[in-house]
Amino acid sequence: MLHVDRLNGGYLGKQVLHDISFEVKKGELVGLIGLNGAGKSTTIKHILGLLSPLSGKIEIDGETLDSSEKNYRKKVSYIPETPILYETLTLQEHIELMGKAYDVNPDELAARTKRLAKEMRMEKQLAWFPSVFSKGMRQKAMILCALVTKTPLLIVDEPFVGLDPLAIRQLLQLFDEYKQDCAILMSTHILETAERHCDRFVFLHQGVVIASGTAAELRDVYRLSPDATLDDIYVEAIASEERSS
């Protein structure tokens, strides 16, 4: 679904990503794991088309940003780390906006909204303006807006920040459901949760992919015992990388 091939990129005058390659297949939830400043958000911004790559190729479901910006963007929805909502629109109107932008059939949109809002305990808040939302509600609103689109690829940046334990559990269930016929790329620091729910992992360190694969594959790579947690694997991966450099 998502193919990132030898991506070099970053900000004006500062290259952050070096030859990054990975993919996310249909039905997969892939965890993008890295320290602060490893390049996770920069990678996501490149995939979303908010930054232009220096070189390399990003393809979502066969589309690139150059082939058709509109078609490319219609294939990806995004949940940012910091919720960004329009203060002038209610949550219901945000959802209407998403429906119009992603060409979702109005009946289908209404049905999805009803079900998701109920599951996320946000039914009452549909008519509210974001100014009265708590931090957690804002994050749930962003999640709801992204999930109603049902795009082939969902990108999630640190989705658990500000959510209560019940909401985190609910969100993970929704992700499990979403990925059945789509793909999810999730950047997170909460390795325990990632280990339980991600199918594969991409470890980023200083703008380079240092390892990728399932937990079992990564344990083999770093010669760790079968009971080693993702936390252990990650620490070993960083240590190994720093030793070799």
Binding site: K70, R73, K74, Y78, Y86, H94, L97, A101, Y102, C145
Partner: peptide
């Protein structure tokens, strides 16, 4: 703004 990543 959200529209920066929406298909608009």
């Amino acid at each position: 703004s959200i529209v920066s990543w929406l298909p608009i």
